[in-house]
């Protein structure tokens, strides 16, 4: 549970953000993060803590930088040409942008689910087994089988696919594909799951299933979810952060953000005047 506490013994930070950016037992602490695409600044001086086993939503109008900020946590921005990240992001006492850090174990620790379901063009089984295989998490076939089964069960997909594990993952429906992607992410035992608008390509029924799943997963993982649906943020998350034009405007408990926003821009967005 998040506790309001301004007496954080961290370094001095300057932030214009309204609300409490700190948490009690932070899993990730990000300080003064700036992101540039070539010479265009996409994220401007954002600082935010994420505690373990919480679900936090990043909301804001499109182009506000929420996805870019999300991709900083598992260094997916590295794959984009001309993208530069400044500031520091610390995960379990380690600066993830330190030159000595290898992204492989980092990304194994931080799973990610994307906007559009993107299963590999392989069988359902191979999709889930891929991560454990490359990381060497299973030493026998039985272990691998059980990881696949448990991951699919945790993703709520097992009953639907247990009879056709060898059929291609791309043959599933959109919602099933997205749950397959979630199963694939949790198969490598991450501690944090990043979700980049995971339901934006899905119909309402599939969305409901995924939201329920996120709720379940929140008990075991820290989940950072980017969404442009305020209802979704309200439904699934404990905390909400509002981004605007690359800045973190306001952060707080979801209930508080949606009922009594402190900032005018946040209020304008919540009430539908901008977006």
């Amino acid at each position: 549970m998040v506790i309001m506490n301004y007496n954080n013994n961290n370094m001095d930070i300057e932030t214009k953000t309204i609300g409490n950016i700190f948490t009690e037992n932070p899993k990730i602490t990000s300080r003064n993060v700036n992101v540039f695409y070539h010479d265009k600044q996409a994220i401007n001086n954002v600082s935010l803590d994420i505690s373990s086993k919480e679900i936090i939503s990043l909301i804001g109008p499109s182009g506000c930088g929420k996805s870019t900020f999300l991709r900083c946590f598992n260094r997916m921005n590295d794959t984009i040409d001309g993208c530069k990240v400044e500031g520091n992001i610390v995960l379990d006492d380690q600066d993830i942008y330190h030159p000595s850090v290898d992204v492989v174990p980092l990304r194994a620790k931080i799973g990610m689910v994307f906007q559009k379901p993107n299963p590999f063009p392989k069988s359902i089984y191979d999709n889930v087994a891929y991560g454990p295989k490359i990381h060497g998490l299973a030493s026998t076939k039985d272990e691998l089988d059980s990881i696949v089964e448990l991951s699919l069960k945790n993703a709520g997909l097992w009953n639907e696919v247990k009879d056709r594990l060898q059929s291609p993952g791309t043959g599933l429906s959109g919602g099933q594909q997205q749950r397959l992607c979630i199963a694939r992410a949790i198969a490598v035992s991450p501690e944090i799951i990043l979700m980049d608008e995971p339901c934006s390509a899905l119909d309402p029924i599939a969305t409901a299933k995924i939201e329920e799943l996120i709720h379940q997963l929140g008990k075991n993982y820290s989940i950072v979810i980017v969404t442009h649906s305020m209802q979704q943020a309200a439904r699934v998350s404990q905390r909400t952060a509002y981004f605007h034009l690359g800045e973190l405007i306001e952060v707080g408990l979801t209930k508080q953000i949606f009922t009594t926003p402190q900032d005018k821009q946040t209020e304008a967005y919540i009430s539908g005047r901008i977006g």
Partner: peptide, 19 residues
């Protein structure tokens, strides 16, 4: 089946193997 969480490999142990 959604209401129950099955325990996968412990994250710390997984991290160790990966490293």
């Amino acid at each position: 089946n959604n209401n129950k969480n099955y325990t996968l490999m412990d994250a710390k142990k997984a991290e160790e193997i990966v490293r």
